[in-house]
Simulated assay, not measured.
Amino acid sequence: MSLLPTLSLLVLLTGAAEPAWQQVTRDDGIIVQARTPEGGSVSEVKATALVDAPPQDVWRVIRDYNNYTKTMPYTEESRVLASEQDGKVIVFHCLVNAPLVDKRDFIIRIVDDSDWKEGKGFLKTSWTVTTQGAPPEKEGVVRVKLNNGYWLLEPREEGKKTFVTYYLYTDPGGSLPKWIADRANKTSVPDVLRAVRKYSTRK
Score class of each variant (00 low, 15 high):
residue 98 A to L: 06
residue 111 V to K: 12
residue 130 T to I: 04
residue 111 V to R: 12
residue 138 K to P: 00
residue 113 D to R: 10
residue 164 V to P: 03
residue 157 E to D: 15
residue 163 F to N: 12
residue 167 Y to K: 06
residue 147 N to D: 14
residue 105 D to T: 05
residue 133 G to C: 02
residue 133 G to R: 03
residue 118 E to H: 10
residue 96 V to C: 02
residue 112 D to I: 05
residue 132 Q to M: 06
residue 146 L to K: 15
residue 163 F to Y: 13
residue 131 T to H: 13
residue 145 K to H: 13
residue 110 I to N: 14
residue 161 K to T: 14
residue 130 T to M: 02
residue 121 G to Q: 08
residue 164 V to I: 02
residue 143 R to M: 08
residue 132 Q to I: 11
residue 163 F to W: 11
residue 143 R to W: 04
residue 140 G to T: 03
residue 148 N to R: 13
residue 133 G to E: 00
residue 144 V to M: 04
residue 97 N to H: 13
residue 152 L to M: 09
residue 161 K to S: 13
residue 123 L to Q: 15
residue 127 W to C: 08
residue 167 Y to E: 07
residue 118 E to S: 14
residue 151 W to E: 06
residue 119 G to L: 03
residue 118 E to Q: 12
residue 118 E to T: 07
residue 125 T to C: 12
residue 164 V to Q: 02
residue 96 V to M: 01
residue 158 E to H: 14
residue 151 W to I: 05
residue 159 G to R: 02
residue 146 L to S: 14
residue 150 Y to D: 10
residue 106 F to M: 10
residue 96 V to E: 01
residue 110 I to D: 14
residue 120 K to F: 03
residue 144 V to K: 03
residue 156 R to C: 06
residue 165 T to P: 06
residue 110 I to F: 00
residue 158 E to G: 09
residue 121 G to A: 12
residue 117 K to M: 07
residue 104 R to H: 08
residue 102 D to Q: 15
residue 119 G to M: 07
residue 109 R to G: 06
residue 156 R to H: 13
residue 123 L to C: 09
residue 140 G to H: 01
residue 124 K to L: 00
residue 149 G to W: 03
residue 96 V to Q: 01
residue 153 L to N: 11
residue 162 T to R: 08
residue 134 A to S: 14
residue 150 Y to F: 14
residue 154 E to H: 10
residue 162 T to Q: 08
residue 113 D to T: 13
residue 142 V to H: 06
residue 140 G to K: 06
residue 133 G to Y: 01
residue 145 K to A: 15
residue 160 K to Y: 04
residue 118 E to W: 01
residue 138 K to C: 03
residue 96 V to G: 00
residue 121 G to L: 06
residue 134 A to H: 05
residue 143 R to Q: 08
residue 115 D to F: 08
residue 144 V to R: 01
residue 148 N to E: 15
residue 136 P to H: 07
residue 116 W to K: 05
residue 151 W to D: 08
residue 100 L to K: 12
residue 103 K to M: 00
residue 129 V to F: 04
residue 118 E to M: 04
residue 150 Y to E: 07
residue 153 L to C: 12
residue 136 P to M: 00
residue 108 I to A: 11
residue 162 T to G: 10
residue 167 Y to M: 12
residue 167 Y to C: 09
residue 121 G to V: 07
residue 129 V to M: 06
residue 117 K to D: 09
residue 98 A to V: 04
residue 166 Y to S: 00
residue 142 V to T: 15
residue 107 I to R: 03
residue 150 Y to I: 01
residue 152 L to T: 13
residue 133 G to M: 00
residue 155 P to F: 10
residue 142 V to F: 07
residue 136 P to Y: 05
residue 147 N to L: 05
residue 111 V to E: 08
